[in-house]
């Protein structure tokens, strides 16, 4: 699974969401990154926390780049679940900006919490004011976090922060921590309106 929203072209600085994810990872943790792309996050976490990381990536060319970057990367399709992974075999399972492109959204979150003690899920907040304004003015939102046109987007399950909160309640998922950011800036006030990227740290309730 590629990272459909944001590709990292800036190699001098770590993506702000990756920096925040890093704060939620314990030293030497065993981490599974679903849709790991070129492996940038795992490489960062390895340098920061000496983690034992594995990545899952479906796309051939991302897979190859991740391997060349030294990542233990497994070519699997997340849509078919995580049957190759034991229950509670990872400290943290990460799904970074991939949830919205999954068909089996409910399944993958449940699988993450089966395989990991904790899960980290990040996604572009569809409730962000710029998205709302674009719709009000008659267009599907196109932005830095949603860079696609309606006809070529891989995103099939976009949601707002409020929607995801409700999703967690309905599926008995406990939110350990939530961060909302816009261009790397922490958003405390009206997050579902002012935040463009939502980050959740989850566990089974």
């Amino acid at each position: 699974m590629s990272q459909p929203i944001q590709s990292s072209t800036d190699h001098t600085a770590i993506r702000p969401d990756f920096a925040l994810i890093s704060q939620w990872i314990k030293p030497h943790a065993k981490v599974l990154d679903l849709g790991c792309g070129d492996g940038e996050l795992l490489t960062h976490l390895h340098h920061q926390h000496d983690i034992r990381g594995y990545g899952v990536e479906k796309d051939d060319s991302n897979w190859l780049t991740a391997m060349e970057n030294g990542v233990d990367v497994l070519q699997m399709d997340l849509e078919s679940g995580l049957s190759g992974f034991e229950d509670q075999s990872f400290d943290t399972v990460i799904l970074s900006q991939t949830l919205q492109a999954m068909h089996n959204t409910e399944g993958i979150v449940q699988e993450m919490l089966r395989v990991g003690h904790e899960a980290i899920v990040t996604f572009p907040n569809f409730g962000y004011w710029r998205n709302r304004f674009q719709i009000v003015f008659g267009n599907m939102p196109v932005s830095k976090t949603l860079p696609y046109q309606w006809y070529d987007t891989p995103n099939v399950h976009l949601c707002t922060i409020d929607d995801f909160d409700a999703f967690c309640t309905k599926h008995h998922i406990a939110i350990i921590e939530r961060k909302v950011i816009t261009d790397g800036q922490d958003i405390q006030f009206l997050p579902n309106f002012l935040g463009n990227l939502a980050m959740y740290r989850l566990k089974s309730a």
Binding site: Y54, L74, Q75, M76, E86, S89
Partner: peptide
């Protein structure tokens, strides 16, 4: 092949797995 991969993962062994089309 994935059975081999799983057994390696269970032992936290370094493994890369490619499914070539």
């Amino acid at each position: 092949s994935k059975e081999i991969v799983k057994a390696l993962l269970d032992n936290e062994i370094s493994v890369r797995y490619a499914e070539v089309t």
